[in-house]
């Protein structure tokens, strides 16, 4: 630190201190199954043995019962937009052109919605209850990552009734 009054210099206000740390993430047993499913173009969820709810992506436990989810369930490629927002803010690491739709999608047969990208429709045309389907990357590009799902797009079916998904909001 320099004394601004005695030297006439500005005090040090900012120092750059870059931090770079690499991590090896562990997906976990349940999520590994899910990721392997993605690399085959399938959504694999898990069912809680107590409350029988189906979770996708599975984390290995039922969040309300605190017990391992054991039964594997293959889910549909289609689902319903329960709610959504239009993202219009640029941020670091963003790979999608703004504005885009970030939606909660409830796959048919699942009991919890997950976040997905909606494309192939104008942002102002998206609706709660809209029926959508996953668009997968070409088979040679499939891998154990959410990037295997390129996006979701409207199926063209009539919208789901609000009553049918309101408990998932």
């Amino acid at each position: 630190m320099t004394d601004a009054t005695s030297t006439g210099q500005e005090p040090v206000a900012i120092m750059e201190s870059p931090i770079h740390v690499d991590y090896r993430f562990t997906a976990g047993l349940a999520q590994s199954r899910f990721l392997k499913g993605l690399s085959q173009g399938r959504f694999l969820g898990q069912r809680c043995p107590r409350c029988h709810k189906v979770y996708v992506p599975p984390r290995g436990s039922c969040p309300t019962d605190g017990v391992p989810t054991t039964d594997e369930v293959e889910l549909s490629n289609q689902g319903t937009v329960t709610t959504y927002c239009v993202v219009n803010v640029p941020f670091q690491g963003q790979s999608i052109e703004i504005p885009y739709i970030c939606a909660q999608i409830l796959l048919d047969g699942a009991n919890l919605a997950f976040m997905g990208l909606i494309q192939e429709i104008a942002a102002d045309q998206v609706r709660m209850g809209m029926r959508v389907e996953a668009v997968w990357v070409p088979p040679e590009e499939l891998g154990p990552t959410m990037a295997s799902v390129r996006h979701f797009r409207p199926t063209g079916e009539p919208d789901a009734d609000y009553e049918s998904f309101k408990e998932y909001l």
């Binding site: 993430f25 997906a27 959504y84 927002c85 990037a147 609000y162 909001l169």
Partner: peptide
Amino acid sequence: PFSAPLLAGAGGYFAPIIRAYMR
């Protein structure tokens, strides 16, 4: 890893919930 960067901060998380409240 394993997830696509979609959220764009806390607003992306809460905006759909606000939409649900409005509805």
